[in-house]
Nucleic acid binder design. Structure first.
Lengths: 210, 210
DNA sequence: TCTAAAATACCTGTAAACTAGTAGAAAACT
DNA sequence: AGTTTTCTACTAGTTTACAGGTATTTTAGA
């Protein structure tokens, strides 16, 4: 029986990282780095016409965020395994990635050896999370910070609030009553489980909602 | 005359980036990647006993921040040229790096070719900033956002404000009068040139003051 | 030691934010 | 077509934030 290589593609907007992955994963005879992309649309164009086993996915791409990409890949190509790769160890992002089908998540401070291990393990159907990530996921079980779903309008209001614009001026901008803005603001504070605008801004920035 | 290679060292806490730089810069016959480090202390240990032309310096290292490293290198080894390399295009960080002696600054989305060009140019005594960075530096001339100096107490209050704690509770925590907290808060808002707490929080996060 | 800077505290007034409840109209979903 | 969600808007009362001063006591630098 002929050994099939694991077909891997890399999506990262840093050419330097791509080159690093190419040279180090290329050394592994069981892994075939088919192609590398710097944005999401190129990735999807490729997925349309090729079979792929594992996608190594940077969470921060210019044209689409990692969570959305995960969701779309999982929906359209459920056989494709996703490994998140990012500088950020933000629990909410990691959890969202996992919820949307990522089978693994690594920080960029991993060695290429560990990455290769992860690819193999995930390709076998298991999951893989680096030590630090495991700890984060474990911790976040206790404080079950469900990411609340915000409506379109609420997101709009949130970003304006986060810019420090006051209620009456937000109302002016959105051409609605200040009272309505107040309501949205109130609902946001309630949904996000905070108690004032300052915390709301912090939250929004942390969860990259703005 | 024998051609001397440019002696370069790379400091980055991401092994993947290091491998990428190694493989791509290694291909350039005029550049000698002497060594790579993942933290600042290893870097300084090496500088003590070796002559180096150019340091490629990631701004985010585990043990020391980029600005501090720049300052120290410039002071102790003024002949060593520094090229900042980072994911962040935060104007205040870039400006601080330049102020502290960085001769170039690139975002991690550069190609290795551009990086090589930068190394050569900087080694010749010129400076090099990638297009995006040039734009940022140019923009920041107009809005001369001098980073205001905050006092110790102000920083304390700022981080508490940023956590969304209200004035009376901050007062309780710091065991001072709420009126004093109000004064600090007001001074902060004035110093940072913003108009409310929400903007203050945003600012503080952006400038990594908390 | 003198002095400038920082931290502390207070007053007054206005504006905005937060709390709590209600409720009709418009979209979206089934 | 019917139900649910979202967006909209209102009343009314409380709390906190913001702006403009002023002033005393520490702390730290020259």
């Amino acid at each position: 029986m002929k050994l099939e290589k694991i077909k891997v593609i890399v999506v990262d907007d840093h050419p330097l990282v791509i080159e690093g992955l190419r040279s180090s994963l290329g050394a592994d005879s069981t892994i075939d780095v088919m192609n590398c992309f710097e944005n999401a649309s190129d990735l999807f164009a490729f997925l349309k016409r090729s079979t792929v086993n594992v996608v190594i996915l940077d969470v921060n791409l210019p044209d689409m965020n990692g969570v959305e990409i995960c969701e779309r890949i999982t929906k359209k190509y459920p056989h494709v395994k996703i490994v998140g790769l990012s500088t950020y160890n933000d629990p909410s992002i990691i959890k969202q990635m996992v919820k949307n089908g990522a089978k693994g998540y690594l920080l960029k401070n991993v060695t290429s050896k560990e990455l290769a291990t992860a690819i193999h393990q995930i390709h076998r159907g298991q999951s893989y999370f680096s030590g630090e990530i495991q700890k984060i996921l474990a911790d976040s079980i206790f404080d079950n910070n469900e990411i609340p779903k915000l409506t379109r309008r609420e997101k709009e209001v949130l970003s304006l609030v986060a810019e420090g614009i006051t209620t009456p001026k937000i109302a002016e901008k959105l051409i609605i009553s200040p009272l309505t803005v107040e309501t949205h603001r109130r609902n946001l504070i309630q949904k996000m489980g905070v108690s004032n605008a300052a915390q709301l801004v912090k939250m929004a920035i942390e969860q990259r909602l703005i």
